[in-house]
Amino acid sequence: MYSLILATASRYLLLLLLIFSVFLLLRGHNEPGGGFTGGLVGASAYALYFIANGIGEARRVLRFDPQAVVASGLLLAALSTLPSLVAGEPFMTAIWIDTGIPLIGKVGTPLLFDFGVYLLVLGMTLSIVFTLAGEEVRP
């Protein structure tokens, strides 16, 4: 069932929801939120877009294979543990750099790690949604 209103709205909602999901991810360190929630919200953004526009369109908008998103999320999370080794600290010690830029402030490996979680949850949810939605993942 195609609804013109939903299809049109979903285009703007997708962007808004994605911004919101990144917002959740970034503020997670100090306020409720975080990579897991952010990833779920991001996934629902695409799920909404898929409901309104169909699976092919949703895949096109996502650009990447959801499995690749899962893999890159896991890779990013794993890579974020490496700086601690280079710095000679015990494995997975958080490393923080104070950028001094207003609004961004301190940047650290936990943020990278959380971003990995975000990507992984997003990719994993979407890979399930897209697979169930009926198209082959890849021939």
């Binding site: 939120g33 975080g34 543990t81 997975m92 301190k106 650290g108 790690f113 959380d114 979680v117």
Partner: peptide, 19 residues
């Protein structure tokens, strides 16, 4: 470096569990 204890536990103190 975070006020949200839950999230700090998830991504820092207990990050290896999360991984």
């Amino acid at each position: 470096k975070g006020r949200n204890v839950v999230n700090v536990i998830l991504v820092d103190f207990r990050a290896i569990d999360t991984l």
